[in-house]
């Protein structure tokens, strides 16, 4: 249990700057999700905290202790990798116990800790199996177990669910979150999946091109995106962006309205032609095209009428739900 502080952390590979200075301070026991598209530097950031990448400048502190120059094992962290990184020739027990063995933990304590973790993760019956004899979800659990037995100050997760199928992902999402709550360990979790970010995070960091665009609670980030990028990245389907031109307004402010806030109405000033619609059962997504080619999506209840393809309809929204962005993408 510990706090984690990043102050103006930067990373360059040769002359390419990958991370342009990120500062986050994570409270004890907090679950922070770093979310962003691929290539935004989120994994690199996590690996710098883990000690697998050097820190070009800035400081990483765990519980007030500067760890920049420490080896991963001295940082008191545990990491769960995307492909689990289980040692293929070792049994589940040995996989979980390996770190403790290296730390010369007494045999009895190793057994006790592994047994405890195995119980938490329902792996008791698999302890003597090899990783290849386990299913994806079970391997994921072993990777979690390996992290838990170390009793680290900080858990680091590097897209741990992206190799699982959709159903298992939802289940493991809940389990990881529950486990983290139960253990009360500070966690840093990297994902590209905004649903994971929204559902798991106490606070989330939305990264874009090596910059943290916004740090905040999920609902706050959703309701109040700081930049055009965040507005487009968080929320599904993504926010509709409309230029001032098409709205008939002056200036160069862009307007963003979420599909769930956009209404189809005959009186709407903005006219668009229905292109196609996706019926999802509980709701229907109607995709429309404005005169200048701008795509707009509207989320409709299944009960409401869906416009015929090719028909022109009006679009309308509550001005309170309108988000305005200046040309640099900042909220204004």
């Amino acid at each position: 249990m510990a706090t984690l502080t990043l102050s103006n952390v930067k990373k360059s590979f040769g002359k390419t700057d990958v991370i342009h200075g990120i500062s986050i301070s994570v409270e004890d026991g907090e679950f922070i999700v770093i979310v962003g598209p691929s290539g935004c530097g989120k994994s690199t950031l996590l690996r710098m905290v883990a000690g697998l990448e050097t820190i070009t400048s800035g400081d990483v502190q765990i519980d007030g202790r500067r760890v920049n120059d420490q080896e991963p094992m001295d940082r008191d962290i545990a990491m769960v990798f995307q492909n689990y990184a289980l040692y293929p020739h070792m049994s589940v027990f040995d996989n979980m116990a390996y770190g403790l063995k290296i730390a010369r933990t007494p045999r009895a304590e190793i057994e006790e800790r592994v047994a405890h973790a195995a119980k938490l993760l329902q792996l008791e019956t698999f302890l003597q199996r090899k990783p290849r004899e386990l299913s994806g979800g079970q391997r994921q659990r072993v990777a979690m177990g390996r992290a838990i037995v170390r009793k680290p100050a900080v858990f680091l997760f590097d897209e741990p669910l992206s190799n699982l199928d959709a159903k298992l992902r939802v289940q493991m999402r809940l389990e990881i979150k529950a486990l983290q709550r139960e253990l009360g360990v500070t966690a840093l979790y990297v994902t590209h999946d905004q649903v994971e970010a929204m559902t798991m995070a106490d606070r989330m960091v939305v990264m874009n091109g090596g910059i943290a665009d916004q740090v905040g609670e999920p609902l706050e980030v959703y309701a109040n995106p700081a930049t055009e990028f965040v507005a487009g990245f968080i929320g599904s389907p993504p926010t509709n962006f409309l230029s001032a031109d098409i709205l008939g307004r002056s200036g160069d402010t862009k307007v963003g309205v979420r599909p769930e806030h956009t209404r189809l109405s005959d009186s709407g000033s903005l006219r668009a032609r229905a292109a196609y619609s996706e019926a999802l059962g509980a709701e229907t997504l109607v995709h429309l095209k404005c005169a200048d080619g701008t795509q707009v999506t509207v989320r409709q209840d299944a009960a409401s009428t869906i416009p015929q393809e090719g028909n022109e309809v009006g679009l309308d929204w509550d001005p309170a739900n309108e988000m305005r962005f200046d040309p640099s993408g900042r909220r204004c």
Binding site: M79, F81, G99, I102
Partner: peptide, 9 residues
């Protein structure tokens, strides 16, 4: 695998 081993110490 090498990284996991590093983290394991």
């Amino acid at each position: 695998l090498a990284e996991a081993a590093r983290v394991d110490g």
